[in-house]
Amino acid sequence: MSLVPVTININGTPTPAQVEPRMLLVQFLRDELELTGTHVGCDTSQCGACTVSLNGEAVKSCTLFAVQADGMDVQTIEGIGSMDDLHPIQAAFWEQHGLQCGFCTPGMIMASAEIIRRNPDPSEEEIREQLGGNFCRCTGYHNIVKAISSAAAVMREKGAEAGQAADD
């Protein structure tokens, strides 16, 4: 089985590589690029720990071959904020204590971005329903839901400010 040349745009950096067709995107990220923020929980597309963004949409990177992402944009938890400049969702998980052990957190944050992308003002019920593909075995979800509500509010405000600035 021959290797396939791909170039995947990872967190804004075009990344050329030769991959075996059966290599999963999550294995490519973790084992080849050492981007170990994306986790493998169940490896059966149920738990959501491996969630990344593919061309702007959240996907489970354990259920995608790396070759399928050839030419596409992949954003991982490493690409959405930094220690000095947390993404509003990262900041909200920090402030609302939306994690305990932290294993599910990268996937939770990437899934949260999808929820807010689909609806900038999601209700609590909606957040709980839309989080159905992300498992947390510590928190009982309560503070995760609070974190997503709070992040959505901050992002709406920032969006409004940006709109205001554009109008000015």
Binding site: S45, T51, L54, A58, V59, T63, A111, R118, Q130, G133
Partner: peptide
């Protein structure tokens, strides 16, 4: 169907 990530693929 599934969840938001599954529905995207």
């Amino acid at each position: 169907v599934g969840d938001p990530m599954v529905r995207n693929r």
